[in-house]
């Protein structure tokens, strides 16, 4: 067993220290060490996007990221978006457009959708679809998720 490593990083705007095993994933750290369960385990190999988080502003799969590599970086999880107007707009759009069913993929979808909107002002549907290609959903058939992202973009523009 590897010894634990002390790291310090900014988590949802607040500086955190944590002692993590060197082989631990950021996902395990967030859920099991820090108790933030909004980031979901779906596959553990970067195929489903349920564990999407933002690191230094870019979306990453927390299951592929070594927890130790969070050291000195800025990490945002779904819990960190509670007061973020752009995220709230998306979350409202997800509810109003029926983009949530079982909801297990939803936090990851919301985070990734936020990146799509941050990059492109008015993304077309194809751009939204490509942007969500790393986020699996088994319930909705994606259409209403795409609708929600499109609506949030329009609302922001209005």
């Amino acid at each position: 067993m590897s010894r634990s490593v002390e790291i310090e990083f900014r988590l949802n705007g607040v500086v955190r220290r944590a002692a993590v095993r060197a082989d631990m994933s950021a996902l395990a750290m967030l859920r099991d060490v820090l108790g933030l369960t909004g980031t979901k385990y779906g596959c553990g190999e970067g195929e489903c996007g349920a564990c999407t988080i933002l690191v230094d502003g870019a979306s990453l799969n927390a299951c592929l990221l070594f927890a130790v590599d969070c050291d000195g970086r800025e990490v945002t999880t779904i819990e960190g978006l509670a007061n973020d107007p752009a995220a709230q707009r998306l979350q409202r759009a997800f509810a109003e457009h029926g983009a949530v069913q079982c909801g297990f993929c939803t936090p990851g979808m919301v985070l990734q959708a936020g990146r799509i909107l941050a990059r492109a002002g008015q993304p077309d549907r194809a751009t939204i679809q490509r942007g969500l290609e790393g986020n699996l959903c088994r319930c909705t058939g994606y259409k209403k998720i795409i609708d929600a992202v499109e609506a949030a973009a329009k609302e922001r523009a209005a």
Binding site: E45, N61, L64, L65, F66, D69
Partner: peptide, 22 residues
């Protein structure tokens, strides 16, 4: 990036040396 190493270490395809060099 860890995108290959992490799943490989989970599946046992890759084993860690004594030093993890980031």
């Amino acid at each position: 990036g860890g995108t290959d190493l992490m799943p490989q270490s989970h599946s046992g395809k890759a084993r860690f040396g004594s030093l993890l060099l980031n």
